[in-house]
């Protein structure tokens, strides 16, 4: 990321703490091409998840929540937060999904590893973001809002979670009013959240199916978070 252009403190902070993109580590445990791709992807997701948990602690207001609420929000919203990044990186790449700079999967590759449904859903989300021409500021804010808005149940301290959400909403509104000047922009971004949740639900279902039906081994953190869904 380049230096933050936003004068909004919350969004500038989110930009500064955004982790650098990870590279995929090619799995060497099998000669089966599609299995190799899938294991490489799962390893990448596990490492991204670890970074996301560290990043969440830097979202203004997150660390003030109770530990129970922090856990609930992450358990509900982690896949949405990760997919914001995938969809954003996959813009203007033709028909590929860019999970990492060195892990780009087209439709046929996704189908071969059992992720055909996820491919369709993620391309839909990618096209949506592309048509909205998102800025980096909007991407990091959407990511934080996806976590804050994860509708975790039960919530330990609903007021604190509400204040956390309100803080991010205010930041988005201020940014849109001062930087983009489009009257309905903040609302349009919020209206893209249902598609993000739908896509994340499909992703979670797909990885759980691969784990249970095809016995794909998953890292402990990734499995724990998938199971929490």
């Amino acid at each position: 990321y380049t230096l933050p252009a936003s004068r909004n403190k919350v969004i500038s902070h989110l930009l500064l703490t955004e982790p650098s993109p990870l590279a995929a580590n090619q799995d060497e445990s099998t000669n089966d091409g599609s299995l190799k791709t899938l294991l490489t992807l799962c390893d990448l997701l596990n490492r991204e998840l670890l970074l996301l948990i560290g990043w969440a602690k830097h979202i203004p207001g997150f660390s003030g929540l109770s530990l129970v609420d922090q856990m609930s929000l992450l358990q509900s919203g982690w896949m949405e937060a990760l997919l914001v990044g995938v969809a954003w990186r996959s813009q203007r790449t033709g028909d590929e999904l860019v999970f990492a700079g060195n892990l780009r999967l087209d439709e046929a590759q996704c189908r071969a590893v059992g992720l055909a449904d996820l491919y369709v859903a993620l391309r839909h989300l990618t096209c949506k973001y592309q048509s909205m021409n998102l800025s980096q500021e909007e991407v990091v804010t959407l990511k934080a809002m996806a976590l804050a808005n994860s509708d975790a149940d039960p919530v330990d301290c609903a007021d604190s979670v509400q204040r956390f959400q309100d803080g991010l909403h205010e930041a988005l509104q201020e940014y849109e009013a001062t930087q983009r000047g489009e009257q309905h922009r903040a609302g349009r971004l919020l209206m893209s959240l249902p598609l993000l949740r739908q896509t994340a639900d499909r992703a979670v279902a797909a990885f759980l199916r691969l784990h249970r039906q095809r016995r794909i081994p998953l890292h402990k953190l990734l499995l724990e978070m998938l199971d929490a869904k």
């Binding site: 596990n46 670890l50 948990i53 560290g54 602690k57 530990l67 922090q70 856990m71 992450l74 358990q75 890292h219 402990k220 953190l221 724990e224 978070m225 199971d227 929490a228």
Partner: peptide
């Protein structure tokens, strides 16, 4: 908490090694 051990440890900034 026991069921979600790793996330719990990561959020608590545990100094003990976390088995991922």
């Amino acid at each position: 908490k026991e069921k979600h051990k790793i996330l719990h440890q990561l959020l608590q900034n545990s100094t003990s090694p976390v088995d991922l």
